[in-house]
Design a protein around this nucleic acid. Structure first.
Lengths: 202, 202
DNA sequence: ACCTGAACACCGTTCAAGT
DNA sequence: ACCTGAACACCGTTCAAGT
């Protein structure tokens, strides 16, 4: 036994990790299964034991991305039952900052994640992953409604505008339409405007 | 001269048209240059006369998409100097409907368009294409500001929130997070909320 | 159970040669 | 000016064989 063969228990995780690095560095198109196997010191046929085909690996990457995005949003919000957690405008600001931050740092992955549905055979776990990722902001919106900080009505309907604004801003920044300065002033303005429309009228 | 060779003047246009069909039908990954050439009855080396490589064809497709999206938005707005064109809320509703309609009918293309910047070498014409595509809504927002229908301030700042909401809603629908019914009621609600935040306070 | 390595079909790109 | 067709390097996938 000379050079260690990479299968020390978890080739699957190693494939995902290395694939995430490659995608982050060079985009989805720069990912080659054979090169991946070479990087990990494994034969080019080995990945097929863990992923039926290349698309399955990309799907796993996208699902992992949703989990990370969801965790990032959850971390930006107060824990669910914190009674002293008012001021939804602050929560929204932090949430949007987390979302845009994730988008900027994982631009290629974000594209992969939100392109999954447009493929001929999207992964069966995708809808559940989407719901899970966005559960925390949905809950925060609902609580803000109950506190009267935000207009009443169907949560999903109110959330649609909030999530659309956040995602759209993030997507348009990574697409190169907006060129915000580092201060985050533009995002703050957008969120302020959004919050302005969300507040209950007396 | 038996079977017609496809080079009757415009193989370039034929390549773009056929490529757009293939992408719309099966996604970007299903596009093969060799298959494209076969479809058009041309040798597999022929496309290289018109596109340096496959990426150049995809770039052309994306740029063409921005032109079509821009045209679709322009068509949804009253012509620039129509003096009787008040009521920005109506314009915004029509604009959003056009945008979401384009997104739903060209889901794969939309992904390709907004992923262009994340590639290692994005096309030099991309920034200009983005600006051109979004020029019409920007102008409409500016006019609405001048009419006093919308809060004053830097146009780009105000536009950021509007464009983000529109694009984000479209992207999240094609991504499968939202499942709006055909009535467009959800979009109408989102636009209403947005408009609510945009109106000047007295 | 997990990996190897040969084999297969297909791909993008290049380039001398044709017209 | 435009296209052909052979050639090259690389790819994803499959599968008998090894351990």
């Amino acid at each position: 036994m000379a050079a260690p063969r990479y299968h020390h228990g978890d080739l699957r995780a190693a494939l995902i990790n290395r694939a995430a690095e490659v995608v982050a560095a060079g985009g989805v198109d720069s990912l080659s299964l054979r090169e991946l196997a070479r990087d990990l010191g494994v034969s080019h046929g080995a990945p097929s034991r863990h992923f039926a085909d290349k698309q399955a690996l990309l799907d796993a990457l996208a699902l992992d991305g949703f989990e990370r995005l969801g965790a990032s949003m959850s971390a930006a919000l107060p824990s669910g039952d914190d009674p002293a957690a008012g001021d939804f405008s602050v929560q929204l600001r932090d949430l949007a900052a987390a979302y845009v931050g994730f988008a900027v740092q994982n631009a290629s992955l974000l594209v992969l994640m939100f392109a999954a549905k447009t493929r001929q055979a999207s992964p069966a776990e995708l809808p559940a992953a989407l719901d899970r990722a966005f559960a925390a902001p949905l809950r925060a919106i609902q609580l803000a409604q109950e506190r009267g900080e935000v207009v009443a009505g169907d949560v999903e309907a109110v959330a649609a505008g909030i999530l659309a604004t956040m995602h759209g801003y993030a997507a348009l920044v990574t697409a190169g339409l907006f060129h915000p300065d580092e201060s985050g002033a533009e995002l703050a303005g957008v969120i302020g405007q959004l919050m302005n429309g969300l507040r209950r009228r007396d």
